[in-house]
């Protein structure tokens, strides 16, 4: 590694803390109380983050935060574009843009009630063999006729082709295409997902995104390459209150900073993970993750770990602090215990 020593000319500052809790829930309650206390001292929620090695490590804390009525957003979960309903809608757009996209054809045909894998394959085969010429070079975009040749298909498939045919017209801008497709998709969404209300918000977001584009190609490329980060379904919505606390994996916290940073589960076996313990290279990467986590803090850094965590895979009880901080004491790190 390149040797370097970070320094600042700014004077003062509090010592980072290492806080031991008897169990997971005590760790969670400690974090909640500390956050409430900081808030009373004038530190706003949006200037506080709780970081962790893996996404599942915050579940217990999330419950305690909800109890204490502290709004939060969690980062590092599923991505917007990877959620099923957004993928459904994007698939319609993809076949408009590239009718040889069999993956998307398959997806949208299977969404139709009464169309199983076999029917879907037949239809796709027909689309590919008879009407799309894979090798005709530049003019791979479908003609209006392409979308109209659907007379022999089951009725529901005819409807799909009709909608696609309308949306395919080059004079129709992407936002309007989205409107037509979402209108077609609405009953499907309702039928397939119990939480369709919540999911509809993602689709509204999708509609908003389409408004920024004049052409389909760039829209799809951007969605694939630079998707909006989080799905609304997966992010705990903070409601009308705009102030919220950040929960994030360390990976998703890269490049960001907060007044106060908590690093929870700095527990040997969780951070570093069990898996990483076997390899020098992976251990070094975990060490760098700890470094990244610590350097997110501007004023306060609080590292916590719970004891008595049962690890199912190994059958071990985890009790020791992460090896990356174990043995570091004053004057670098102030030890605390939660009672």
């Amino acid at each position: 590694m390149y040797y370097k020593e970070l320094y600042t000319t700014r004077p003062g500052g509090q010592l980072p803390q290492l806080v031991r809790a008897e169990n997971e829930n005590m760790q969670s309650r400690y974090v909640v109380q500390k956050i409430l206390q900081l808030r009373e001292e004038g530190v706003e929620l949006h200037d506080i983050a709780v970081l962790f090695r893996s996404s599942f490590l915050s579940f217990d804390l999330e419950i305690e935060l909800t109890k204490a009525n502290i709004p939060f957003m969690k980062f590092g979960g599923f991505k917007f574009i990877e959620t099923a309903h957004v993928k459904d809608v994007v698939a319609y757009f993809r076949v408009l843009d590239n009718p040889r996209d069999v993956v998307s054809w398959n997806r949208i045909l299977l969404l139709i009630e009464g169309v199983g894998p076999r029917t879907a394959e037949k239809i796709i085969d027909d689309i590919l063999k008879k009407r799309v010429q894979p090798d005709d070079g530049n003019s791979a975009l479908p003609t209006t006729r392409f979308w109209q040749e659907y007379h022999n298909y089951p009725e529901q498939v005819q409807t799909l082709f009709h909608v696609l045919g309308q949306a395919a017209r080059p004079s129709v801008p992407p936002a309007e295409k989205a409107q037509q497709i979402l209108q077609y998709y609405a009953p499907i969404l309702k039928a397939r997902y119990d939480d369709h209300q919540k999911r509809r918000k993602d689709l509204e977001m999708f509609q908003n995104i389409t408004e920024r584009y004049r052409e389909l190609g760039p829209l799809l490329t951007d969605l694939a390459l630079e998707p909006p980060n989080e799905s609304i379904v997966d992010v705990e919505s903070p409601g009308p209150e705009t102030e919220y606390l950040t929960l994030s994996t360390i990976h998703s916290a890269k490049g960001l900073e907060w007044h106060t940073v908590f690093i929870i589960y700095a527990l040997e076996g969780r951070f570093p993970t069990m898996r990483a313990v076997a390899s020098d290279e992976e251990l070094e990467e975990e060490q760098r993750l700890m470094y990244v986590a610590c350097t997110r803090a501007k004023e306060n850094l609080i590292i916590t770990y719970p004891m008595n965590i049962y690890d199912r895979e190994s059958g071990m009880i985890l009790t020791k602090p992460s090896r990356f901080i174990e043995g570091i004491d004053e004057p670098l790190l102030e030890p605390w215990v939660v009672e």
Partner: peptide
Amino acid sequence: STQPILNLANEI
């Protein structure tokens, strides 16, 4: 960051 936070990060 403050120097105490940097000291810990350097040490890690």
